[in-house]
Design a protein around this nucleic acid. Structure first.
Length: 444
DNA sequence: AGAGCGTTGTA
DNA sequence: ACAACGCTC
């Protein structure tokens, strides 16, 4: 048996399904997919992260007597060249549309063996008592109680006695050759997943209380590592579950499961409202541009967006604040926001991003009620009272009294500060959104 | 099949 | 209160 081990979003050795299930002669490879790269900005941060992770993986594979061939090509072309020599490809599953279409085409060239490796559960399982997929988080979460109860989930180790297929693929394409520039990444991304995990574990007890506060450093910082599989979901679970205080963070891990599960069962939700609502969005291009650039005149929204643009990161609650502002206050289609996040977020995960935007725009299956609209000023007052986060990003406001950040036109009232005026009044746009969603619902 | 409930809120 | 609905058992 001759197998290609196609690494994609599983850039690790331990608990890796394709390495564990491999047998005989193997050819590990990674493809920098031209179809994907050609659509990216030359300054895309994720590719820098993936690039360094892939080089690390190559070293790790060499330590266990294997290696990694690195291609810059279209997957179809790579496998066309290799098809005579191999019996099958092993890879992990992705449920987003691009991945599904890609894999279907590859399968016509060489048989593909897929493993559910990026998530704890296989979405095909875990149906409700009516044998239908869950649409509400809590019952879904309760159905995973058996997992929660098990303090350890069995992980996988690389298979023994693998032989490396004839290997003369030492050439590694440079980032520049792929049309990309090396980017400076947030410092924590240079650290190994185990190190971040250990640091998080030491402050786990504070997580539940502090996780909502933008300026506190309470989050796991592991979303990017999880996204590209430098750490598996099982490893994450196993490391944290033993602790008393783990419920809150495991719950978030299960949200990740839920959103992957929803995308699997409701693939159309990637493109359309999951609930068949016909909302009359305003979709004003100028407003959208201001939102993207962090020029809305609402300090917490602008700080969140500019921080995203600068770093590729955004705090969970901030994502809710800016997405509520876009879809409700500005009445712009969630798909515009989803696409922008897809371009910018270092931890962009299609399933989580899509479901979260559907949540914010009240179009998803278990989303926020349309009349429960975030007031960005109350959010910043509650979660960034001293304006620490806002000032860290909007440095031109660093001398201001933080109270000004938490009321409409507060900053603008200071005549010495040059800050954009508000696009809309919060009160007016809130009522406008409620009306638009009411209308959408009453349509046949 | 009818009861009970629903991630993150606001005025 | 908001609006009152879909999901789940």
């Amino acid at each position: 048996m001759k197998q290609i081990l196609w690494f994609r979003r599983d850039l690790r050795i331990e608990d890796n399904a394709i390495l564990a299930h491999a047998q005989g002669e193997v050819f590990p490879l990674f493809i920098f997919d031209q179809n994907i790269l050609e659509k990216l900005d030359a300054k895309d941060k994720r590719v820098t992260f993936i690039y360094q992770s892939v080089l690390n993986l190559k070293k790790e594979l060499q330590k266990i007597g294997l290696n990694l061939a690195i291609f810059y090509d279209k997957p179809e072309a790579v496998f066309q060249r290799l098809k005579e020599k191999f019996d099958e490809i092993l890879c992990s599953i992705d449920h987003d549309n691009y991945a599904k279409v890609r894999d279907k085409n590859i399968e016509k060239i060489i048989p593909l063996k897929r493993f559910n490796d990026a998530f704890l559960i296989d979405p095909q399982e875990h149906l409700n008592k009516s044998h239908l997929p869950y649409k509400v988080f809590t019952p879904f979460y309760n159905s995973l109680f058996y997992l929660w109860e098990s303090h350890k989930i069995k992980t996988l180790s690389p298979a023994n006695n693998l032989q490396l297929h004839d290997f003369n693929y030492e050439h590694v394409p440079s980032l520049e050759a792929m049309g990309l520039k090396k980017q400076i990444l947030p410092e924590f991304l240079e650290q190994k997943a185990e190190v971040l995990l250990e640091k998080f574990t030491s402050k786990l007890t504070a997580y539940q209380k502090e996780r909502d506060f933008f300026s506190l450093d309470a989050s796991t910082k592991l979303s990017v590592h999880l996204r590209f599989g430098l750490l598996s979901a099982k490893q994450f679970f196993n490391a944290l579950r033993p602790y008393q205080a783990s419920e809150a963070v495991i719950r978030q891990l299960f949200f990740r499961e839920f959103y992957n599960y929803l995308l699997y069962h409701f693939p159309h939700s990637q493109f359309e409202n999951q609930k068949p609502l016909k909302i009359k969005f305003l979709n004003n291009q100028e407003d959208f541009k201001k939102w993207c650039q962090g020029e809305t005149g609402v300090p917490i929204v602008d700080a969140g967006m500019r921080h995203l643009n600068q770093t590729g990161l955004m705090h969970n609650r901030l994502r809710m604040v800016v997405s509520s502002y876009l879809t409700k206050n500005l009445l712009i289609d969630w798909r515009w926001g989803e696409a922008y996040f897809a371009k910018k977020l270092l931890d962009y995960e299609a399933s989580s991003n899509i479901a979260s935007w559907q949540w914010a725009s009240s179009t998803g299956s278990d989303s926020v009620p349309y009349f429960r609209i975030f007031n960005p000023y109350l959010q910043s007052e509650k979660f960034d009272k001293e304006g620490i986060f806002i000032k860290s990003v909007l440095t031109e406001l660093s001398q201001l009294d933080p109270k000004l950040f938490h009321k409409e036109n507060g900053v603008q009232s200071n005549l010495f500060i040059n800050y954009p005026s508000q696009i809309v009044s919060i009160k007016m746009s809130r009522l406008r959104a409620i009306e638009a969603f009411k209308q959408a619902k009453s349509k046949p």
